[in-house]
């Protein structure tokens, strides 16, 4: 279980990777991952390739991020979801608010 943040060379893309279980244990870490961003940037990628489990608290965290960064980021992408995780996001209508690929 871990959370890793990286920034692209041009500083325009921040990638947050969540490994294992994406739940309320990350509330603080996740918040600091995006609150460290200064000014505006192009894209935030939440990379869930190694996320096995998530629950509604993770959905809450994602929504909070979107609210906090409104107007400062062009695009929030949720990437590389496993099929079941993708289904949870779709059921929650997250595909309307986030770019899920």
């Amino acid at each position: 279980m871990s959370l890793k943040t990286s920034t692209s060379a041009d500083g325009q893309t921040v990638t947050i990777e969540v490994k294992g279980k994406f739940d309320f244990n990350f509330v603080q870490d996740f918040r600091s991952a995006y609150s460290a961003i200064e000014g505006s940037i192009d894209t935030i990628i939440v990379d869930l390739r190694e996320t096995e489990y998530m629950d509604s608290s993770a959905l809450g965290m994602l929504l909070n991020m979107q609210k906090t960064l409104a107007g400062r980021v062009n695009n929030i992408k949720i990437s590389n979801c496993k099929p079941q995780i993708k289904k949870i996001l779709q059921i929650s209508r997250f595909d309307k608010k986030f770019d899920i690929d």
């Binding site: 096995e52 509604s56 496993k82 079941q84 289904k87 949870i88």
Partner: peptide, 8 residues
């Protein structure tokens, strides 16, 4: 095959 969903 359903473990993520069952976990949720």
């Amino acid at each position: 095959e359903h473990r993520s969903t069952l976990y949720l």
